[in-house]
Design a protein around this nucleic acid. Structure first.
Lengths: 199, 199
DNA sequence: CCCCTAAACGGACCACGGTCCACTTATATT
DNA sequence: AATATAAGTGGACCGTGGTCCGTTTAGGGG
Protein backbone atom coordinates (compact mmCIF):
# COMPACT_ATOMS: atom_id res chain seq x y z
CA UNK A 1 0.00 0.00 0.00
CA UNK A 2 1.36 3.33 -1.08
CA UNK A 3 1.10 6.64 0.72
CA UNK A 4 -2.02 8.67 0.23
CA UNK A 5 -1.44 11.07 -2.70
CA UNK A 6 -2.07 14.34 -0.85
CA UNK A 7 -1.12 16.60 -3.79
CA UNK A 8 -1.33 19.88 -1.92
CA UNK A 9 -2.18 20.64 1.63
CA UNK A 10 -4.76 23.31 2.11
CA UNK A 11 -5.44 23.66 -1.59
CA UNK A 12 -7.82 22.01 -4.00
CA UNK A 13 -6.40 18.97 -5.85
CA UNK A 14 -5.22 21.30 -8.62
CA UNK A 15 -7.10 21.94 -11.82
CA UNK A 16 -6.69 19.69 -14.78
CA UNK A 17 -5.13 21.11 -17.93
CA UNK A 18 -8.21 21.01 -20.10
CA UNK A 19 -10.23 22.53 -17.30
CA UNK A 20 -7.89 25.47 -17.03
CA UNK A 21 -7.94 25.95 -20.78
CA UNK A 22 -11.71 25.96 -20.82
CA UNK A 23 -11.86 28.43 -17.95
CA UNK A 24 -9.70 30.84 -19.94
CA UNK A 25 -11.74 30.25 -23.07
CA UNK A 26 -14.95 30.95 -21.19
CA UNK A 27 -13.65 34.09 -19.54
CA UNK A 28 -12.51 35.39 -22.90
CA UNK A 29 -15.85 34.64 -24.46
CA UNK A 30 -17.70 36.33 -21.61
CA UNK A 31 -15.52 39.42 -21.69
CA UNK A 32 -15.95 39.69 -25.42
CA UNK A 33 -19.71 39.43 -25.13
CA UNK A 34 -19.78 42.13 -22.47
CA UNK A 35 -17.64 44.38 -24.62
CA UNK A 36 -19.57 44.09 -27.82
CA UNK A 37 -23.15 43.41 -26.79
CA UNK A 38 -23.49 44.43 -23.17
CA UNK A 39 -23.86 42.45 -20.00
CA UNK A 40 -27.39 41.29 -20.76
CA UNK A 41 -26.07 39.38 -23.74
CA UNK A 42 -23.92 37.30 -21.44
CA UNK A 43 -26.15 34.30 -21.37
CA UNK A 44 -24.78 31.04 -20.10
CA UNK A 45 -25.67 29.42 -23.40
CA UNK A 46 -24.11 32.22 -25.38
CA UNK A 47 -20.88 32.07 -23.44
CA UNK A 48 -20.72 28.30 -23.73
CA UNK A 49 -21.44 28.38 -27.43
CA UNK A 50 -18.94 31.12 -28.09
CA UNK A 51 -16.26 29.29 -26.18
CA UNK A 52 -17.13 26.10 -28.03
CA UNK A 53 -17.98 24.08 -24.96
CA UNK A 54 -21.13 22.69 -23.42
CA UNK A 55 -23.29 24.64 -21.03
CA UNK A 56 -22.61 22.21 -18.23
CA UNK A 57 -18.96 23.18 -18.34
CA UNK A 58 -19.74 26.81 -17.67
CA UNK A 59 -21.62 25.90 -14.55
CA UNK A 60 -18.98 23.45 -13.45
CA UNK A 61 -16.33 26.15 -13.71
CA UNK A 62 -18.19 29.09 -12.27
CA UNK A 63 -21.15 27.70 -10.39
CA UNK A 64 -23.61 30.30 -11.57
CA UNK A 65 -24.00 33.35 -13.70
CA UNK A 66 -23.09 35.53 -10.75
CA UNK A 67 -20.00 33.41 -10.22
CA UNK A 68 -18.98 33.99 -13.80
CA UNK A 69 -19.40 37.73 -13.34
CA UNK A 70 -17.39 37.54 -10.15
CA UNK A 71 -14.60 35.80 -12.06
CA UNK A 72 -14.81 38.51 -14.69
CA UNK A 73 -14.21 41.09 -11.97
CA UNK A 74 -11.49 39.18 -10.27
CA UNK A 75 -8.63 41.03 -11.91
CA UNK A 76 -9.96 44.51 -11.15
CA UNK A 77 -10.89 43.48 -7.66
CA UNK A 78 -7.41 42.21 -6.93
CA UNK A 79 -5.92 45.39 -8.28
CA UNK A 80 -8.00 47.46 -5.89
CA UNK A 81 -7.11 45.18 -3.02
CA UNK A 82 -3.45 45.46 -3.83
CA UNK A 83 -3.74 49.21 -4.15
CA UNK A 84 -5.21 49.74 -0.73
CA UNK A 85 -2.95 47.22 0.93
CA UNK A 86 0.39 47.98 -0.65
CA UNK A 87 -0.06 50.89 -3.06
CA UNK A 88 0.80 54.55 -2.60
CA UNK A 89 -1.15 56.94 -0.37
CA UNK A 90 -3.76 58.12 0.07
CA UNK A 91 -5.29 54.73 -0.79
CA UNK A 92 -2.41 52.67 0.49
CA UNK A 93 -0.57 52.80 3.80
CA UNK A 94 1.13 56.02 4.75
CA UNK A 95 -1.81 58.39 4.82
CA UNK A 96 -4.05 59.06 7.84
CA UNK A 97 -6.75 56.38 8.14
CA UNK A 98 -9.61 58.73 7.41
CA UNK A 99 -8.02 59.90 4.20
CA UNK A 100 -7.46 56.30 3.24
CA UNK A 101 -11.08 55.54 3.98
CA UNK A 102 -12.25 58.39 1.80
CA UNK A 103 -9.92 57.30 -0.99
CA UNK A 104 -11.29 53.79 -0.69
CA UNK A 105 -14.86 54.97 -1.14
CA UNK A 106 -13.92 57.05 -4.14
CA UNK A 107 -12.09 54.12 -5.67
CA UNK A 108 -15.10 51.87 -5.33
CA UNK A 109 -17.40 54.42 -6.86
CA UNK A 110 -14.97 54.81 -9.73
CA UNK A 111 -15.02 51.06 -10.14
CA UNK A 112 -18.79 51.08 -10.34
CA UNK A 113 -18.57 53.82 -12.92
CA UNK A 114 -16.58 51.64 -15.29
CA UNK A 115 -17.69 48.11 -14.40
CA UNK A 116 -21.10 48.88 -13.01
CA UNK A 117 -23.14 46.44 -15.01
CA UNK A 118 -20.90 43.49 -14.38
CA UNK A 119 -20.63 44.44 -10.74
CA UNK A 120 -24.37 44.54 -10.38
CA UNK A 121 -24.78 41.24 -12.16
CA UNK A 122 -22.24 39.76 -9.76
CA UNK A 123 -24.26 41.00 -6.80
CA UNK A 124 -27.06 38.60 -7.64
CA UNK A 125 -25.40 35.76 -5.82
CA UNK A 126 -27.23 34.81 -2.63
CA UNK A 127 -23.99 33.35 -1.32
CA UNK A 128 -21.29 35.59 -2.80
CA UNK A 129 -23.03 38.90 -2.41
CA UNK A 130 -22.04 39.65 1.14
CA UNK A 131 -19.87 36.72 2.07
CA UNK A 132 -17.56 36.63 -0.93
CA UNK A 133 -13.82 37.10 -0.53
CA UNK A 134 -13.77 40.57 -2.11
CA UNK A 135 -16.44 41.87 0.22
CA UNK A 136 -14.85 40.23 3.24
CA UNK A 137 -11.54 41.87 2.51
CA UNK A 138 -13.17 45.25 2.06
CA UNK A 139 -14.97 44.90 5.36
CA UNK A 140 -11.80 43.88 7.14
CA UNK A 141 -9.95 46.80 5.61
CA UNK A 142 -12.57 49.33 6.61
CA UNK A 143 -12.75 47.92 10.12
CA UNK A 144 -9.02 48.23 10.41
CA UNK A 145 -9.08 51.83 9.21
CA UNK A 146 -11.86 52.71 11.64
CA UNK A 147 -9.98 51.14 14.51
CA UNK A 148 -6.79 52.95 13.60
CA UNK A 149 -8.76 56.17 13.42
CA UNK A 150 -9.80 55.57 17.00
CA UNK A 151 -13.46 55.06 16.26
CA UNK A 152 -15.24 53.15 18.97
CA UNK A 153 -18.31 50.97 18.95
CA UNK A 154 -19.48 48.06 16.83
CA UNK A 155 -16.94 48.49 14.04
CA UNK A 156 -18.16 45.48 12.10
CA UNK A 157 -21.60 47.00 11.72
CA UNK A 158 -20.23 50.44 11.10
CA UNK A 159 -18.09 49.07 8.29
CA UNK A 160 -21.10 47.28 6.81
CA UNK A 161 -23.09 50.46 6.95
CA UNK A 162 -20.35 52.39 5.20
CA UNK A 163 -20.08 49.80 2.47
CA UNK A 164 -23.82 49.48 1.94
CA UNK A 165 -24.31 52.72 -0.01
CA UNK A 166 -21.49 51.70 -2.33
CA UNK A 167 -23.42 48.70 -3.67
CA UNK A 168 -23.41 48.75 -7.43
CA UNK A 169 -27.18 48.48 -7.76
CA UNK A 170 -27.76 51.58 -5.66
CA UNK A 171 -24.99 53.61 -7.23
CA UNK A 172 -26.17 52.73 -10.72
CA UNK A 173 -29.70 53.72 -9.82
CA UNK A 174 -28.56 57.05 -8.48
CA UNK A 175 -26.42 57.75 -11.50
CA UNK A 176 -28.62 56.43 -14.30
CA UNK A 177 -32.14 56.92 -13.02
CA UNK A 178 -31.70 59.94 -10.78
CA UNK A 179 -29.03 61.58 -12.87
CA UNK A 180 -26.62 62.14 -10.01
CA UNK A 181 -23.00 62.56 -10.98
CA UNK A 182 -20.38 60.27 -9.56
CA UNK A 183 -18.62 63.32 -8.18
CA UNK A 184 -21.68 64.10 -6.14
CA UNK A 185 -21.87 60.51 -4.93
CA UNK A 186 -18.20 60.52 -4.02
CA UNK A 187 -18.51 63.81 -2.15
CA UNK A 188 -21.62 62.53 -0.40
CA UNK A 189 -19.85 59.41 0.68
CA UNK A 190 -16.89 61.40 1.94
CA UNK A 191 -19.30 63.50 3.94
CA UNK A 192 -20.77 60.33 5.42
CA UNK A 193 -17.38 58.85 6.21
CA UNK A 194 -16.16 62.02 7.91
CA UNK A 195 -19.31 62.32 9.97
CA UNK A 196 -19.09 58.72 11.08
CA UNK A 197 -15.45 58.99 12.09
CA UNK A 198 -15.71 62.43 13.64
CA UNK A 199 -15.16 63.14 17.38
CA UNK B 1 -71.36 64.48 -29.77
CA UNK B 2 -71.43 63.65 -26.12
CA UNK B 3 -69.00 64.77 -23.48
CA UNK B 4 -65.85 62.73 -23.03
CA UNK B 5 -66.47 60.24 -20.24
CA UNK B 6 -63.58 61.25 -18.00
CA UNK B 7 -64.51 58.95 -15.11
CA UNK B 8 -61.92 60.29 -12.71
CA UNK B 9 -59.47 63.07 -13.05
CA UNK B 10 -55.96 62.22 -12.09
CA UNK B 11 -56.77 58.57 -11.52
CA UNK B 12 -56.66 55.48 -13.68
CA UNK B 13 -59.95 54.65 -15.46
CA UNK B 14 -61.03 52.62 -12.44
CA UNK B 15 -60.66 48.90 -12.13
CA UNK B 16 -63.30 46.60 -13.43
CA UNK B 17 -65.22 44.44 -10.97
CA UNK B 18 -63.79 41.12 -12.04
CA UNK B 19 -60.33 42.58 -12.03
CA UNK B 20 -60.69 43.75 -8.45
CA UNK B 21 -62.07 40.39 -7.41
CA UNK B 22 -59.18 38.58 -9.04
CA UNK B 23 -56.66 40.87 -7.39
CA UNK B 24 -58.07 39.99 -4.01
CA UNK B 25 -58.18 36.32 -4.90
CA UNK B 26 -54.56 36.41 -5.99
CA UNK B 27 -53.36 38.27 -2.92
CA UNK B 28 -55.15 35.77 -0.71
CA UNK B 29 -53.63 32.88 -2.56
CA UNK B 30 -50.16 34.38 -2.36
CA UNK B 31 -50.45 35.15 1.34
CA UNK B 32 -51.66 31.64 2.01
CA UNK B 33 -48.77 30.15 0.10
CA UNK B 34 -46.29 32.26 2.01
CA UNK B 35 -47.84 31.25 5.28
CA UNK B 36 -47.91 27.55 4.72
CA UNK B 37 -45.04 26.80 2.39
CA UNK B 38 -42.70 29.75 2.55
CA UNK B 39 -41.92 32.48 0.10
CA UNK B 40 -40.09 30.22 -2.34
CA UNK B 41 -43.32 28.36 -2.96
CA UNK B 42 -44.89 31.55 -4.24
CA UNK B 43 -44.54 30.76 -7.89
CA UNK B 44 -46.53 32.74 -10.38
CA UNK B 45 -48.07 29.53 -11.65
CA UNK B 46 -48.82 28.34 -8.16
CA UNK B 47 -50.52 31.59 -7.21
CA UNK B 48 -52.51 31.66 -10.42
CA UNK B 49 -53.57 28.07 -10.06
CA UNK B 50 -54.53 28.47 -6.42
CA UNK B 51 -56.58 31.54 -7.21
CA UNK B 52 -58.20 29.73 -10.10
CA UNK B 53 -57.09 32.17 -12.78
CA UNK B 54 -54.62 32.10 -15.63
CA UNK B 55 -51.00 33.05 -15.24
CA UNK B 56 -51.39 35.99 -17.56
CA UNK B 57 -53.80 37.55 -15.10
CA UNK B 58 -51.24 37.53 -12.33
CA UNK B 59 -48.83 39.44 -14.50
CA UNK B 60 -51.51 41.80 -15.70
CA UNK B 61 -52.39 42.66 -12.11
CA UNK B 62 -48.95 42.86 -10.57
CA UNK B 63 -46.49 43.20 -13.37
CA UNK B 64 -43.92 40.84 -11.96
CA UNK B 65 -43.17 38.59 -9.07
CA UNK B 66 -41.55 41.47 -7.24
CA UNK B 67 -44.67 43.53 -7.85
CA UNK B 68 -46.79 40.83 -6.29
CA UNK B 69 -44.53 40.78 -3.26
CA UNK B 70 -44.73 44.54 -3.08
CA UNK B 71 -48.51 44.29 -3.06
CA UNK B 72 -48.29 41.69 -0.34
CA UNK B 73 -46.35 44.18 1.77
CA UNK B 74 -48.56 47.09 0.99
CA UNK B 75 -50.61 46.85 4.15
CA UNK B 76 -47.65 46.66 6.52
CA UNK B 77 -45.86 49.36 4.63
CA UNK B 78 -48.80 51.72 4.92
CA UNK B 79 -49.06 50.99 8.61
CA UNK B 80 -45.46 51.99 9.13
CA UNK B 81 -45.92 55.11 7.05
CA UNK B 82 -48.96 56.08 9.04
CA UNK B 83 -47.14 55.39 12.28
CA UNK B 84 -44.24 57.69 11.53
CA UNK B 85 -46.43 60.39 10.03
CA UNK B 86 -49.33 60.49 12.46
CA UNK B 87 -48.69 57.96 15.23
CA UNK B 88 -47.44 58.50 18.76
CA UNK B 89 -43.85 59.39 19.61
CA UNK B 90 -41.09 58.48 19.42
CA UNK B 91 -41.88 57.25 15.92
CA UNK B 92 -44.49 59.87 15.17
CA UNK B 93 -44.38 63.63 15.55
CA UNK B 94 -43.75 65.05 18.99
CA UNK B 95 -40.35 63.56 19.75
CA UNK B 96 -37.01 65.13 18.86
CA UNK B 97 -36.05 64.34 15.26
CA UNK B 98 -33.08 62.19 16.19
CA UNK B 99 -35.18 60.01 18.44
CA UNK B 100 -37.71 59.68 15.67
CA UNK B 101 -34.95 58.70 13.27
CA UNK B 102 -33.70 56.02 15.63
CA UNK B 103 -37.21 54.73 16.15
CA UNK B 104 -37.67 54.61 12.41
CA UNK B 105 -34.59 52.46 11.95
CA UNK B 106 -35.67 50.12 14.69
CA UNK B 107 -39.11 49.83 13.17
CA UNK B 108 -37.70 48.87 9.80
CA UNK B 109 -35.42 46.27 11.28
CA UNK B 110 -38.38 44.85 13.16
CA UNK B 111 -40.27 44.73 9.91
CA UNK B 112 -37.46 42.79 8.29
CA UNK B 113 -37.51 40.44 11.23
CA UNK B 114 -41.08 39.43 10.59
CA UNK B 115 -41.49 39.94 6.84
CA UNK B 116 -37.91 39.51 5.79
CA UNK B 117 -38.38 36.96 3.07
CA UNK B 118 -41.18 38.77 1.34
CA UNK B 119 -39.33 42.04 1.70
CA UNK B 120 -36.25 40.58 0.08
CA UNK B 121 -38.26 39.05 -2.72
CA UNK B 122 -39.82 42.45 -3.30
CA UNK B 123 -36.40 44.03 -3.58
CA UNK B 124 -35.74 42.17 -6.81
CA UNK B 125 -37.53 44.74 -8.87
CA UNK B 126 -35.16 46.77 -11.04
CA UNK B 127 -37.72 49.54 -11.10
CA UNK B 128 -39.41 49.32 -7.70
CA UNK B 129 -36.38 48.63 -5.60
CA UNK B 130 -35.22 52.17 -5.10
CA UNK B 131 -37.84 54.21 -6.88
CA UNK B 132 -40.97 52.64 -5.44
CA UNK B 133 -43.45 54.70 -3.44
CA UNK B 134 -42.57 53.10 -0.12
CA UNK B 135 -38.89 53.82 -0.53
CA UNK B 136 -39.53 57.34 -1.77
CA UNK B 137 -41.63 58.13 1.26
CA UNK B 138 -39.01 56.74 3.60
CA UNK B 139 -36.33 58.84 1.94
CA UNK B 140 -38.43 61.96 2.16
CA UNK B 141 -39.18 61.27 5.80
CA UNK B 142 -35.55 60.76 6.72
CA UNK B 143 -34.52 63.86 4.81
CA UNK B 144 -37.09 65.85 6.69
CA UNK B 145 -35.91 64.51 10.02
CA UNK B 146 -32.31 65.29 9.18
CA UNK B 147 -33.20 68.79 8.16
CA UNK B 148 -35.20 69.36 11.32
CA UNK B 149 -32.27 68.06 13.31
CA UNK B 150 -30.17 70.77 11.73
CA UNK B 151 -27.93 68.46 9.79
CA UNK B 152 -26.26 70.15 6.86
CA UNK B 153 -24.94 68.85 3.57
CA UNK B 154 -26.33 66.63 0.85
CA UNK B 155 -29.30 65.33 2.80
CA UNK B 156 -30.62 63.25 -0.06
CA UNK B 157 -27.44 61.21 -0.18
CA UNK B 158 -27.18 61.07 3.57
CA UNK B 159 -30.69 59.68 3.76
CA UNK B 160 -29.88 57.10 1.10
CA UNK B 161 -26.80 56.07 3.00
CA UNK B 162 -28.77 55.67 6.20
CA UNK B 163 -31.40 53.57 4.49
CA UNK B 164 -28.93 51.38 2.64
CA UNK B 165 -27.90 49.21 5.58
CA UNK B 166 -31.57 48.55 6.32
CA UNK B 167 -32.07 46.67 3.05
CA UNK B 168 -33.71 43.35 3.71
CA UNK B 169 -31.12 41.32 1.89
CA UNK B 170 -28.29 42.69 4.01
CA UNK B 171 -30.17 42.46 7.28
CA UNK B 172 -31.20 38.90 6.55
CA UNK B 173 -27.65 37.97 5.71
CA UNK B 174 -26.38 39.45 8.94
CA UNK B 175 -29.03 37.75 10.99
CA UNK B 176 -29.20 34.34 9.33
CA UNK B 177 -25.71 33.79 7.99
CA UNK B 178 -23.64 35.75 10.47
CA UNK B 179 -25.85 35.04 13.45
CA UNK B 180 -26.16 38.65 14.54
CA UNK B 181 -29.17 39.46 16.67
CA UNK B 182 -31.62 42.09 15.57
CA UNK B 183 -30.93 43.92 18.81
CA UNK B 184 -27.32 44.25 17.80
CA UNK B 185 -28.31 45.47 14.36
CA UNK B 186 -30.70 47.99 15.83
CA UNK B 187 -28.10 49.25 18.28
CA UNK B 188 -25.56 49.43 15.50
CA UNK B 189 -27.90 51.43 13.35
CA UNK B 190 -28.68 53.78 16.21
CA UNK B 191 -24.96 54.27 16.67
CA UNK B 192 -24.66 55.12 12.99
CA UNK B 193 -27.59 57.50 13.04
CA UNK B 194 -26.31 59.34 16.09
CA UNK B 195 -22.85 59.68 14.63
CA UNK B 196 -24.22 61.01 11.37
CA UNK B 197 -26.42 63.58 13.05
CA UNK B 198 -23.93 64.58 15.72
CA UNK B 199 -22.42 68.08 15.97
C1' DC C 1 -82.59 45.13 -23.47
C1' DC C 2 -79.01 45.06 -26.76
C1' DC C 3 -74.75 46.41 -28.43
C1' DC C 4 -70.29 48.10 -28.43
C1' DT C 5 -65.70 48.64 -26.81
C1' DA C 6 -62.14 48.75 -23.75
C1' DA C 7 -60.61 45.89 -20.33
C1' DA C 8 -59.59 41.51 -18.71
C1' DC C 9 -58.57 36.74 -19.41
C1' DG C 10 -56.01 32.35 -20.10
C1' DG C 11 -52.78 29.42 -21.46
C1' DA C 12 -49.54 28.33 -25.18
C1' DC C 13 -45.10 29.86 -25.89
C1' DC C 14 -40.28 31.53 -25.14
C1' DA C 15 -35.68 32.36 -22.97
C1' DC C 16 -32.82 31.67 -19.44
C1' DG C 17 -30.61 29.74 -15.24
C1' DG C 18 -29.64 25.61 -13.31
C1' DT C 19 -29.38 20.25 -12.72
C1' DC C 20 -28.21 15.60 -14.07
C1' DC C 21 -25.89 11.80 -15.63
C1' DA C 22 -23.91 8.76 -19.07
C1' DC C 23 -19.73 9.26 -21.44
C1' DT C 24 -14.88 10.88 -22.25
C1' DT C 25 -10.19 12.10 -20.94
C1' DA C 26 -6.09 13.71 -18.33
C1' DT C 27 -2.92 12.27 -15.31
C1' DA C 28 -0.66 9.52 -11.74
C1' DT C 29 0.84 4.87 -10.73
C1' DT C 30 2.85 0.59 -11.88
C1' DA D 1 2.73 1.04 -22.36
C1' DA D 2 -1.25 -0.39 -19.72
C1' DT D 3 -4.37 0.72 -16.30
C1' DA D 4 -7.15 2.84 -12.86
C1' DT D 5 -9.76 6.64 -11.36
C1' DA D 6 -11.00 11.05 -10.36
C1' DA D 7 -12.04 15.00 -12.96
C1' DG D 8 -14.12 16.96 -16.71
C1' DT D 9 -17.58 17.24 -20.43
C1' DG D 10 -21.89 18.08 -23.07
C1' DG D 11 -26.36 18.50 -23.95
C1' DA D 12 -30.98 16.83 -22.87
C1' DC D 13 -34.03 18.17 -19.44
C1' DC D 14 -36.64 20.99 -15.97
C1' DG D 15 -38.85 24.90 -13.50
C1' DT D 16 -39.74 29.55 -13.51
C1' DG D 17 -40.43 34.37 -14.84
C1' DG D 18 -42.25 36.82 -18.44
C1' DT D 19 -44.64 37.72 -23.18
C1' DC D 20 -48.26 37.37 -26.63
C1' DC D 21 -52.44 37.25 -28.72
C1' DG D 22 -56.93 35.29 -29.86
C1' DT D 23 -61.11 35.02 -27.06
C1' DT D 24 -64.32 36.45 -23.44
C1' DT D 25 -66.80 39.67 -20.65
C1' DA D 26 -68.12 43.69 -17.85
C1' DG D 27 -70.85 47.41 -17.84
C1' DG D 28 -72.11 51.98 -19.75
C1' DG D 29 -74.88 54.44 -23.64
C1' DG D 30 -78.55 54.12 -26.90
Amino acid sequence: MSAIPLPQIGAQPAERGDAARNRALLLDAAALLVAERGVDAVTMDAVACRAGVGKGTVFRRFGSRAGLMQALLDHTERELQHAFMFGPPPLGPGAPPIDRLVAFGRARIAMVEVQGDVLRAAENAPEFRFGGPARSLSIAHVISLLRTAGVEGDLELLASALLAPLEASLVLYQVRDLGMTTERLADGWENLARRVTRC
